[in-house]
Write a protein that binds this DNA or RNA. Structure first.
Ligand code: MN
Ligand code: MN
Ligand code: ZN
Ligand code: ZN
Lengths: 152, 152
DNA sequence: CGCCTTACTGCAACTCGTCGCAGTTGCATC
DNA sequence: GATGCAACTGCGACGAGTTGCAGTAAGGCG
């Protein structure tokens, strides 16, 4: 984990106040989930998060973890996209908005930043009057290496 | 269901020979699944297919249906993309290759045809040497109506 | 037609995730 | 510090989908 990629301490600390401001509660379970997320770089699935929480507290239950992920996404603290298998993958914030480009053959994954996605967003805005959510975008396809390997 | 959108009788009929050619077998279960798919317009999920098969034969089992979907996708008879919830949605062939544009707020969905996707495909081919699979693409976002509704 | 190989089916157990409900607890207020 | 309300947790049942395995049957061949 690098400081550049994860929410800094001060930002994570505001979650408690963001919850209170909405009439929601700060519980030991939520504190622990946030602690694990703060130590996570990049992406994490619900079941991975559950597993890591259970290392700290084996009594952690699935429903609490999944419901907390929903709450945190409503607050904007995390966002999700989907892997090739369709499972949700959560991003900790405030990483720059980005999509993913994944090779169906080898699983290699690259991020698509806002600049790269801008032409696509503009095209659908113009032709369909539709705003694309880059954070939710996963493009599947075949990378150069896999295309070359199969070409023979 | 319209003739224009579903695989015609002759094309569905070739599936039996395509299976045989690969050393696979033509079974009553597969015949029935294909019968349901032939009567399906547009998209269908695995559990929807299971449910429809069970109307014809209540003894239909999940594993056979899901495994048959895998086989048919390998043969190229169907393809899948993912709904906003991540679940697989199968397309019967030979519908023209297309992606989807789905509004996260109201669920409205439009198809993206090859012509509309061509600029995107070209861009990623050029900048990342990566071939996009249009059939697998689902773009999430917000439609004009929902944007207007929320603007106030 | 009957045999044999092996693809396939159905089952049971499992994973991931969701949901209603009853009991618990955060936290605001006095 | 005690009280009370509602948000939250944990439970148990459930839905969707996957997988190993043992028994079944498709279909090629004699
Ligand atoms: Mn997929
Ligand atoms: Mn999603
Ligand atoms: Zn690859
Ligand atoms: Zn909409």
């Amino acid at each position: 984990m690098t400081a550049a990629r994860s929410r800094d301490r001060a930002t994570w600390g505001t979650v408690r106040e963001e919850l209170r401001a909405r009439g929601m509660r700060w519980t030991p379970q939520r504190r622990q989930i946030l602690q694990v997320l703060a130590a996570t770089d990049g992406h994490i699935t619900g079941s991975e998060l559950l597993e890591r929480c259970r290392k700290l507290d084996p009594a952690t239950t699935p429903s609490t973890v999944y419901r907390t992920l929903d709450v945190l996404e409503e607050l904007g603290v995390i966002r999700h996209s989907h892997g090739l298998d369709g499972r949700e993958e959560f991003h900790v914030q405030p990483v720059a908005e980005h999509g993913h480009l994944v090779c169906s053959s080898c699983g290699a994954s690259r991020e698509i930043d806002a600049a790269q996605a801008a032409p696509i967003a503009r095209a659908f805005r113009r032709t369909h009057d539709f705003d694309i959510f880059l954070d939710h975008l996963t493009l599947a396809g075949r990378c150069a290496a896999c295309r070359a390997a199969q070409a023979g």
